[in-house]
């Protein structure tokens, strides 16, 4: 470990975009204060080769495990590497690297109550954020998840589907444990879980670009509908588990402080 910040980039068959994105990252001054790890989720194209050639740290899954599992591998790596902060971003270049220092600053900055946030979400819908035009289908899904999160946890989140997130050590340490993180579909359900467990969640404006190459995880009509149903059920499951005290409690009581107050 050289730095206290680790950037986790899960990648699956991103040969067309990952090279350009990593070159941007390499040329920036981010390397002076952050380490980067790319989790190759058993890509069948040249993704791993590109990453290796550019000299980035690469962890390859033996076979495809999915986006959530790739993130969890990154969290485990961050725990063993004794990092204090983690920023996760997509490898397709949708998340601009200018978001990294902003999220990093926010993770370290104490709020009015004297505590820094545990989870920082880069939002496309806040003032000062820059984003591409979003399809009606996605807008409906985002509104739906906003409503679901608010109903379950009374937390107002403008961009619940954002993959651009910054996590402090208590959060990724908790996520890295077996069974604490949804390694199939980590989305609104994880936000609800962390809010219910008392972790401090904050949103900041983010800069995002339209995907230039590759295929989105949620394309078509049936798949997103199915995804919404799964997510709704998964969030309900988190809520019930919280109410029945079945959610694993955080190891260190940072996240649990608010829990006790409640």
């Amino acid at each position: 470990m050289n730095n206290e910040l680790l950037i986790i980039i899960p990648a699956y068959n991103e040969e067309e975009s990952i090279g350009k994105f990593l070159k941007h990252l390499k040329e920036s001054d981010i390397n002076s204060y952050a380490d980067t790890v790319i989790i190759n989720d058993a890509s069948t194209d040249a993704t791993a080769k590109i990453v290796k050639n550019l000299g980035f740290k690469l962890i390859s899954h033996p076979y495809n495990l999915g986006y959530g599992a790739a993130l969890q591998t990154g969290y485990k790596y961050a725990v063993t590497g004794n990092y204090n902060y983690v920023i996760q971003m997509d490898s397709d270049g949708q998340h601009d690297i200018c978001n990294i220092p902003r999220i990093y600053d926010c993770l370290r900055k104490k709020n009015a109550s004297g505590n820094p946030p545990d989870l920082v979400i880069g939002s496309r819908f806040l003032k000062d954020s820059k984003s591409f035009a979003i399809s009606l289908k996605k807008k409906i899904a985002i509104h739906f998840f906003r409503r679901v999160i608010y109903t379950a946890s009374h937390q107002r989140i403008t961009d619940p589907t954002s993959g651009l997130q910054g996590l402090s050590r208590p959060v990724f340490e908790y996520y890295s444990d077996f069974g604490n993180f949804d390694n199939n579909y980590p989305d609104a359900n994880m936000i609800v879980q962390m809010a219910l467990l008392g972790y401090r969640i904050q949103e900041i404006p983010a800069v995002m670009h339209k995907r230039e190459a590759g295929k989105s995880m949620h394309f078509g009509i049936i798949e997103p509908m199915l995804y919404m149903c799964i997510m709704l059920f998964s969030t309900f499951d988190v809520f019930v588990r919280y109410k029945w005290n079945l959610l694993p409690k955080p190891m260190n009581q940072k996240g649990g402080q608010k829990l006790e107050e409640k």
Binding site: I39, K57, L58, I59, S60, H61, P62, Y63, L65, G66, A69, Q72, T73, K76, Y77, T80, F178, G179, N183
Partner: peptide
């Protein structure tokens, strides 16, 4: 779930 956990651990150990 256990399979995923093991595969993830293998990936990390390979890197180590």
């Amino acid at each position: 779930m256990r399979n995923k956990e093991l595969a993830s651990q293998i990936a990390l150990l390979t890197e180590q």
